[in-house]
Design a protein around this nucleic acid. Structure first.
Lengths: 122, 122
DNA sequence: AGCATATTCAACCAAATGGTTGACGATTGC
DNA sequence: GCAATCGTCAACCATTTGGTTGAATATGCT
Protein backbone atom coordinates (compact mmCIF):
# COMPACT_ATOMS: atom_id res chain seq x y z
CA UNK A 1 0.00 0.00 0.00
CA UNK A 2 2.17 2.84 -1.30
CA UNK A 3 -0.55 5.32 -2.21
CA UNK A 4 -1.36 7.71 0.65
CA UNK A 5 -5.02 7.89 -0.39
CA UNK A 6 -5.19 4.09 -0.17
CA UNK A 7 -3.77 4.20 3.33
CA UNK A 8 -6.06 6.94 4.58
CA UNK A 9 -9.23 5.31 3.28
CA UNK A 10 -8.13 1.88 4.51
CA UNK A 11 -7.40 3.35 7.92
CA UNK A 12 -10.86 4.91 8.03
CA UNK A 13 -12.56 1.67 7.02
CA UNK A 14 -12.28 0.21 10.51
CA UNK A 15 -14.80 1.33 13.15
CA UNK A 16 -12.31 0.94 15.98
CA UNK A 17 -9.90 3.28 14.23
CA UNK A 18 -12.63 5.82 13.49
CA UNK A 19 -13.63 5.71 17.15
CA UNK A 20 -10.02 6.32 18.14
CA UNK A 21 -9.84 9.36 15.87
CA UNK A 22 -13.04 10.71 17.42
CA UNK A 23 -11.60 10.27 20.88
CA UNK A 24 -8.46 12.13 19.86
CA UNK A 25 -10.62 14.94 18.57
CA UNK A 26 -11.28 15.90 22.17
CA UNK A 27 -7.74 15.66 23.44
CA UNK A 28 -4.35 14.03 23.02
CA UNK A 29 -4.19 10.67 24.75
CA UNK A 30 -1.74 8.04 25.92
CA UNK A 31 -1.91 4.62 24.28
CA UNK A 32 -3.23 2.93 27.41
CA UNK A 33 -6.00 5.48 27.76
CA UNK A 34 -6.93 5.11 24.11
CA UNK A 35 -7.23 1.36 24.66
CA UNK A 36 -9.29 1.59 27.85
CA UNK A 37 -12.85 1.79 26.41
CA UNK A 38 -12.28 -1.04 23.90
CA UNK A 39 -12.81 -4.70 24.59
CA UNK A 40 -9.63 -5.82 22.96
CA UNK A 41 -6.01 -6.21 23.94
CA UNK A 42 -3.62 -3.32 24.26
CA UNK A 43 -1.49 -4.91 21.55
CA UNK A 44 -4.42 -4.77 19.15
CA UNK A 45 -4.93 -1.07 19.85
CA UNK A 46 -1.21 -0.52 19.42
CA UNK A 47 -1.48 -2.02 15.94
CA UNK A 48 -4.44 0.18 15.11
CA UNK A 49 -2.49 3.20 16.26
CA UNK A 50 0.47 2.34 14.07
CA UNK A 51 -1.85 1.97 11.09
CA UNK A 52 -3.30 5.41 11.83
CA UNK A 53 0.20 6.72 12.24
CA UNK A 54 1.48 5.32 8.96
CA UNK A 55 -1.54 6.87 7.26
CA UNK A 56 -0.51 10.19 8.79
CA UNK A 57 -3.81 10.56 10.63
CA UNK A 58 -2.14 10.72 14.02
CA UNK A 59 1.32 11.51 15.30
CA UNK A 60 2.88 9.89 18.33
CA UNK A 61 5.35 11.53 20.67
CA UNK A 62 7.08 9.59 23.42
CA UNK A 63 7.41 11.51 26.67
CA UNK A 64 8.89 9.45 29.40
CA UNK A 65 7.37 6.01 29.26
CA UNK A 66 4.13 7.39 27.91
CA UNK A 67 3.49 7.72 24.19
CA UNK A 68 1.07 10.51 23.42
CA UNK A 69 -1.20 10.27 20.40
CA UNK A 70 -2.25 13.43 18.62
CA UNK A 71 -4.82 13.81 15.87
CA UNK A 72 -3.47 15.15 12.57
CA UNK A 73 -6.62 16.31 10.79
CA UNK A 74 -4.73 17.74 7.81
CA UNK A 75 -4.04 14.19 6.66
CA UNK A 76 -7.74 13.88 5.94
CA UNK A 77 -7.70 16.69 3.48
CA UNK A 78 -6.54 14.89 0.31
CA UNK A 79 -9.21 12.25 0.89
CA UNK A 80 -11.80 14.91 1.57
CA UNK A 81 -10.83 16.77 -1.58
CA UNK A 82 -11.01 13.59 -3.62
CA UNK A 83 -14.52 12.96 -2.37
CA UNK A 84 -15.64 16.50 -2.98
CA UNK A 85 -14.87 15.97 -6.65
CA UNK A 86 -18.08 13.98 -6.73
CA UNK A 87 -20.15 16.63 -5.02
CA UNK A 88 -21.01 18.35 -8.25
CA UNK A 89 -23.58 15.64 -8.83
CA UNK A 90 -25.46 16.39 -5.65
CA UNK A 91 -28.52 18.60 -6.18
CA UNK A 92 -27.51 21.89 -4.56
CA UNK A 93 -26.12 20.92 -1.21
CA UNK A 94 -27.54 23.48 1.12
CA UNK A 95 -26.72 21.13 3.94
CA UNK A 96 -23.03 21.37 3.15
CA UNK A 97 -23.27 25.12 2.99
CA UNK A 98 -24.95 25.32 6.38
CA UNK A 99 -22.39 22.98 7.87
CA UNK A 100 -19.64 25.03 6.34
CA UNK A 101 -20.95 28.31 7.70
CA UNK A 102 -21.50 26.80 11.11
CA UNK A 103 -17.94 25.56 11.19
CA UNK A 104 -16.53 28.87 10.04
CA UNK A 105 -18.61 30.86 12.50
CA UNK A 106 -17.73 28.64 15.41
CA UNK A 107 -13.98 28.40 14.95
CA UNK A 108 -13.01 31.93 16.07
CA UNK A 109 -14.10 31.19 19.65
CA UNK A 110 -11.74 28.20 19.97
CA UNK A 111 -13.55 27.30 23.20
CA UNK A 112 -16.47 25.04 22.35
CA UNK A 113 -15.21 21.58 21.46
CA UNK A 114 -18.76 20.17 21.63
CA UNK A 115 -19.68 21.50 18.19
CA UNK A 116 -19.65 19.02 15.38
CA UNK A 117 -17.70 16.13 16.83
CA UNK A 118 -18.46 12.96 14.88
CA UNK A 119 -19.91 10.08 16.85
CA UNK A 120 -17.36 7.64 18.18
CA UNK A 121 -17.51 4.42 16.17
CA UNK A 122 -19.44 6.16 13.41
CA UNK B 1 -19.04 -5.51 7.40
CA UNK B 2 -22.49 -4.29 8.44
CA UNK B 3 -21.71 -0.61 8.96
CA UNK B 4 -22.29 1.46 5.80
CA UNK B 5 -19.43 3.80 6.67
CA UNK B 6 -17.13 0.80 6.90
CA UNK B 7 -18.21 -0.34 3.46
CA UNK B 8 -17.86 3.04 1.82
CA UNK B 9 -14.38 3.69 3.18
CA UNK B 10 -13.27 0.12 2.42
CA UNK B 11 -14.58 0.49 -1.12
CA UNK B 12 -12.63 3.71 -1.55
CA UNK B 13 -9.42 2.18 -0.22
CA UNK B 14 -8.70 0.41 -3.50
CA UNK B 15 -7.17 2.46 -6.36
CA UNK B 16 -8.90 0.36 -9.01
CA UNK B 17 -12.26 1.10 -7.46
CA UNK B 18 -11.51 4.81 -7.14
CA UNK B 19 -10.49 4.85 -10.79
CA UNK B 20 -13.76 3.16 -11.71
CA UNK B 21 -15.71 5.80 -9.82
CA UNK B 22 -13.82 8.54 -11.64
CA UNK B 23 -14.63 6.94 -14.98
CA UNK B 24 -18.30 6.78 -14.06
CA UNK B 25 -18.19 10.47 -13.19
CA UNK B 26 -18.05 11.19 -16.90
CA UNK B 27 -20.77 8.82 -18.01
CA UNK B 28 -22.64 5.60 -17.27
CA UNK B 29 -20.79 2.58 -18.58
CA UNK B 30 -21.26 -1.10 -19.34
CA UNK B 31 -19.25 -3.57 -17.27
CA UNK B 32 -17.08 -4.59 -20.22
CA UNK B 33 -16.23 -0.97 -21.00
CA UNK B 34 -15.39 -0.31 -17.37
CA UNK B 35 -12.99 -3.24 -17.48
CA UNK B 36 -11.32 -2.27 -20.75
CA UNK B 37 -8.57 0.10 -19.48
CA UNK B 38 -7.50 -2.22 -16.66
CA UNK B 39 -4.94 -4.97 -16.91
CA UNK B 40 -6.97 -7.50 -15.02
CA UNK B 41 -9.67 -10.00 -15.78
CA UNK B 42 -13.30 -9.09 -16.37
CA UNK B 43 -14.19 -11.26 -13.38
CA UNK B 44 -11.96 -9.15 -11.14
CA UNK B 45 -13.64 -5.96 -12.32
CA UNK B 46 -17.00 -7.60 -11.81
CA UNK B 47 -16.05 -8.23 -8.19
CA UNK B 48 -14.93 -4.64 -7.74
CA UNK B 49 -18.22 -3.45 -9.17
CA UNK B 50 -20.23 -5.58 -6.78
CA UNK B 51 -18.23 -4.18 -3.88
CA UNK B 52 -18.98 -0.65 -5.08
CA UNK B 53 -22.59 -1.65 -5.53
CA UNK B 54 -22.94 -3.13 -2.04
CA UNK B 55 -21.43 0.08 -0.66
CA UNK B 56 -24.11 1.99 -2.55
CA UNK B 57 -21.57 3.96 -4.53
CA UNK B 58 -22.91 2.73 -7.86
CA UNK B 59 -26.14 1.23 -9.10
CA UNK B 60 -26.40 -1.35 -11.85
CA UNK B 61 -29.27 -1.74 -14.27
CA UNK B 62 -29.46 -4.64 -16.70
CA UNK B 63 -30.73 -3.67 -20.16
CA UNK B 64 -30.64 -6.55 -22.58
CA UNK B 65 -27.39 -8.40 -22.08
CA UNK B 66 -25.61 -5.23 -21.07
CA UNK B 67 -25.41 -4.15 -17.43
CA UNK B 68 -25.08 -0.40 -17.05
CA UNK B 69 -23.17 1.07 -14.12
CA UNK B 70 -24.18 4.44 -12.75
CA UNK B 71 -22.40 6.54 -10.17
CA UNK B 72 -24.39 7.25 -6.98
CA UNK B 73 -22.53 10.19 -5.47
CA UNK B 74 -25.00 10.63 -2.62
CA UNK B 75 -23.59 7.49 -1.02
CA UNK B 76 -20.40 9.45 -0.42
CA UNK B 77 -22.14 12.02 1.69
CA UNK B 78 -22.17 10.26 5.09
CA UNK B 79 -18.46 9.58 4.73
CA UNK B 80 -17.83 13.14 3.65
CA UNK B 81 -19.82 14.47 6.59
CA UNK B 82 -17.93 12.23 8.98
CA UNK B 83 -14.64 13.59 7.69
CA UNK B 84 -15.79 17.18 7.83
CA UNK B 85 -16.25 16.74 11.56
CA UNK B 86 -12.48 16.97 11.78
CA UNK B 87 -12.24 20.11 9.69
CA UNK B 88 -12.70 22.39 12.67
CA UNK B 89 -9.08 21.77 13.51
CA UNK B 90 -7.83 23.13 10.21
CA UNK B 91 -6.74 26.79 10.37
CA UNK B 92 -9.48 28.56 8.44
CA UNK B 93 -9.92 26.56 5.28
CA UNK B 94 -10.26 29.21 2.65
CA UNK B 95 -9.43 26.52 0.13
CA UNK B 96 -12.53 24.63 1.05
CA UNK B 97 -14.59 27.78 0.81
CA UNK B 98 -13.27 28.53 -2.67
CA UNK B 99 -13.88 24.98 -3.80
CA UNK B 100 -17.35 25.15 -2.36
CA UNK B 101 -18.22 28.38 -4.12
CA UNK B 102 -16.76 27.11 -7.37
CA UNK B 103 -18.86 23.98 -7.14
CA UNK B 104 -22.01 25.87 -6.30
CA UNK B 105 -21.50 28.43 -9.05
CA UNK B 106 -20.82 25.78 -11.65
CA UNK B 107 -23.70 23.46 -10.98
CA UNK B 108 -26.50 25.55 -12.56
CA UNK B 109 -25.00 25.11 -16.03
CA UNK B 110 -25.10 21.28 -15.84
CA UNK B 111 -23.05 21.19 -19.08
CA UNK B 112 -19.36 21.25 -18.15
CA UNK B 113 -18.33 17.83 -16.84
CA UNK B 114 -14.65 18.81 -17.05
CA UNK B 115 -14.80 20.87 -13.87
CA UNK B 116 -13.38 19.22 -10.81
CA UNK B 117 -13.19 15.59 -11.85
CA UNK B 118 -10.80 13.74 -9.56
CA UNK B 119 -7.87 12.03 -11.22
CA UNK B 120 -8.51 8.45 -12.24
CA UNK B 121 -6.59 6.15 -9.87
CA UNK B 122 -6.12 8.99 -7.39
C1' DA C 1 18.16 -2.46 43.42
C1' DG C 2 13.76 -4.01 42.47
C1' DC C 3 9.11 -3.76 41.22
C1' DA C 4 5.24 -1.66 38.66
C1' DT C 5 3.73 0.68 34.50
C1' DA C 6 3.66 1.62 29.46
C1' DT C 7 4.26 -0.09 25.07
C1' DT C 8 5.89 -2.97 21.48
C1' DC C 9 7.48 -7.38 19.45
C1' DA C 10 6.98 -12.10 17.74
C1' DA C 11 4.58 -15.96 16.73
C1' DC C 12 0.46 -17.63 15.72
C1' DC C 13 -4.49 -17.95 13.97
C1' DA C 14 -9.01 -17.35 11.34
C1' DA C 15 -11.12 -14.71 8.11
C1' DA C 16 -11.19 -11.36 4.45
C1' DT C 17 -9.15 -9.43 0.08
C1' DG C 18 -7.77 -9.28 -4.59
C1' DG C 19 -6.54 -11.83 -8.09
C1' DT C 20 -6.69 -16.04 -11.47
C1' DT C 21 -9.02 -19.58 -14.52
C1' DG C 22 -12.70 -22.23 -16.59
C1' DA C 23 -17.46 -23.27 -16.83
C1' DC C 24 -21.97 -21.44 -17.05
C1' DG C 25 -26.54 -18.76 -18.12
C1' DA C 26 -28.58 -15.01 -20.84
C1' DT C 27 -29.09 -12.35 -24.76
C1' DT C 28 -28.26 -10.90 -29.45
C1' DG C 29 -27.56 -11.32 -34.43
C1' DC C 30 -26.71 -13.98 -38.64
C1' DG D 1 -30.41 -22.98 -34.79
C1' DC D 2 -25.96 -21.57 -33.66
C1' DA D 3 -22.16 -18.79 -32.66
C1' DA D 4 -20.59 -14.73 -30.45
C1' DT D 5 -21.03 -11.40 -26.67
C1' DC D 6 -21.93 -9.98 -21.81
C1' DG D 7 -21.43 -10.92 -17.30
C1' DT D 8 -21.36 -13.89 -13.15
C1' DC D 9 -20.20 -18.08 -10.52
C1' DA D 10 -17.20 -21.43 -8.34
C1' DA D 11 -13.02 -23.06 -7.02
C1' DC D 12 -8.65 -22.01 -6.04
C1' DC D 13 -4.46 -19.26 -4.49
C1' DA D 14 -1.30 -15.86 -2.07
C1' DT D 15 -1.38 -12.01 0.80
C1' DT D 16 -3.30 -8.95 4.15
C1' DT D 17 -6.05 -7.95 8.16
C1' DG D 18 -7.48 -7.99 12.80
C1' DG D 19 -7.19 -10.35 16.62
C1' DT D 20 -4.82 -13.36 20.42
C1' DT D 21 -1.03 -14.54 23.84
C1' DG D 22 3.41 -14.32 26.11
C1' DA D 23 7.88 -12.40 26.24
C1' DA D 24 10.75 -8.33 25.87
C1' DT D 25 12.05 -3.38 26.43
C1' DA D 26 11.93 1.04 28.46
C1' DT D 27 10.92 4.12 31.96
C1' DG D 28 9.42 5.65 36.61
C1' DC D 29 8.88 5.12 41.71
C1' DT D 30 10.40 4.05 46.29
Amino acid sequence: MINPLDMVFAALADPTRRAILSMLLEDDMAVTDVAEPFEMSLAAISKHLSILSRAGLISQERRGRVKWCKLEPDALRPASVWMQGFGQFEPVNLDAFERFLETELNTPERDSPETGSPDPAG
